[in-house]
Simulated scan of single mutants.
Amino acid sequence: MSKRNKIALAIMLALGIAIFAFSLRNVNMHNLMHDIVHIHWQWLVVAVICMLLYFGIEALITKMFVTSNGDRFSFRDAIRIPLIEQLFNGITPFSSGGQPAQLIALMQSGVEAGRASSVLLMKFVVFQAMIVINFMVSLLIGFHFLAEKMSYLSLFVVFGFLIHLTVIIGLLLVMYWHGFTKKLISWIMIPIGWFVKKERFERWQVTIDEKVDTFYKESVRIKTQWKLLAKVFVMTFFQLLFYYLVPYYIMLSLGYSGINVVMVTSLHILIVMVISIFPIPGGSGGAEYSFDVLFSSFIHSNSKLVLAMLLWRLLTYYFGIFAGMFALVAKPDKLKRKIEQNN
């Protein structure tokens, strides 16, 4: 991890502590301790298991893509990828550091750079597609609730959805209309060239063309493996489902039974969409505020509401960061290539 990333990590941890302290300013500490002592720990364990399954399924998906050509890739190496992704997503604006970090982690395991890029791109396509599908369903179920409670954030939710939809449409264009997409990108790049130096602009053009060509070549190969894609789509659905269910089990752990699991899950999907467009790493500040406002309709005790928010952020954000720190220093195994196995 670079010095810059270490500084970003320290800042995010300090910011998290400050936000937690600010959230506790009006909470009766006696009531909070009472709520902690009387937590139904079995449901909290289920919430932890949901996060472990979230990481574990993504590791299996990564392993399936890497080994689709016959190479052998250990699960130990595969589980490093989503954990390192969580770490760098959590300390960079708009989660921009996750993809490059995964690429480096795969290369450390012996996966060639071009193939690693292709694996991550295909995984990203499926993940984005499932996010868009889940969000469309949650929008139908919970948007009226969001608009009533946080009307000023409704536009941000729609904006976030449009960004994700644009991304998936762009990726599909590359997969199915490669030539047209390259022309479209060159047209879009024209006004950008007005504001940057010629040398830098040309480097950008070359880099983008290479990435588009690499993704297209890999997509052609992967599209022939429709059984693999079908499995990955189903696995990604359950991966995201486990993640979206975390607030529900946290509420059960605090003694709230009989709550609408569909509504709670839908609201969590909408919160995640709001977080994705906040420039601050992890959506810090906006995430906590969104959770507090939306789930106050289900949790009427102030101390329990703050406790639920703290548990939610610890599990869905900080747990991944700390696990990623351990994964980052763990020495990877080396990929066993199909050619090497046959010799």
Rank of each mutant, 00 (worst) to 15 (best):
I84C: 08
R80I: 01
S109C: 15
P100C: 12
Q86F: 05
L83Y: 01
L103V: 09
S117K: 06
I79F: 02
G98V: 05
A105L: 05
S117V: 04
G90L: 12
F94A: 04
S74C: 05
S118V: 08
A101F: 01
S117N: 13
I104A: 14
L83T: 09
P93Q: 09
D77G: 10
G97V: 04
D77H: 10
S118E: 13
E112P: 13
S96E: 10
M107W: 00
Q86P: 02
S96D: 07
N89C: 13
P82W: 03
P100D: 07
Q108W: 08
L103C: 10
G90T: 09
I81L: 14
Q108R: 15
S109A: 15
F88L: 12
R80K: 15
V111Q: 11
S74K: 13
G114M: 13
Q102A: 01
I81R: 07
S109D: 02
S96L: 12
P100Y: 01
S117M: 14
E85T: 13
A105D: 00
G114K: 14
P93G: 11
L103D: 03
N89G: 05
F94M: 14
T92G: 07
P82G: 10
N89H: 08
A116M: 07
P93N: 05
L83A: 12
E85D: 14
T92C: 11
S74V: 02
G90H: 07
Q86T: 04
V111N: 05
F94G: 06
L83W: 00
Q99W: 03
G98R: 10
G98P: 09
A101E: 01
N89P: 06
A116T: 07
E112D: 15
I84Q: 03
L103Y: 03
S109K: 00
G110Q: 10
G114N: 15
S118A: 15
P100N: 12
T92Y: 03
I84L: 06
A116H: 01
A113Q: 12
S95N: 14
I104P: 00
N89S: 15
F94I: 09
A116E: 01
P93V: 10
S117D: 04
P82K: 13
A116W: 03
R80S: 13
L106I: 07
Q99E: 13
E112C: 07
S96C: 08
L103H: 09
S118R: 12
P82F: 03
S109L: 02
R115L: 11
I84T: 07
L87K: 08
F94N: 02
M107C: 11
A113G: 15
N89K: 12
V111L: 14
S95V: 04
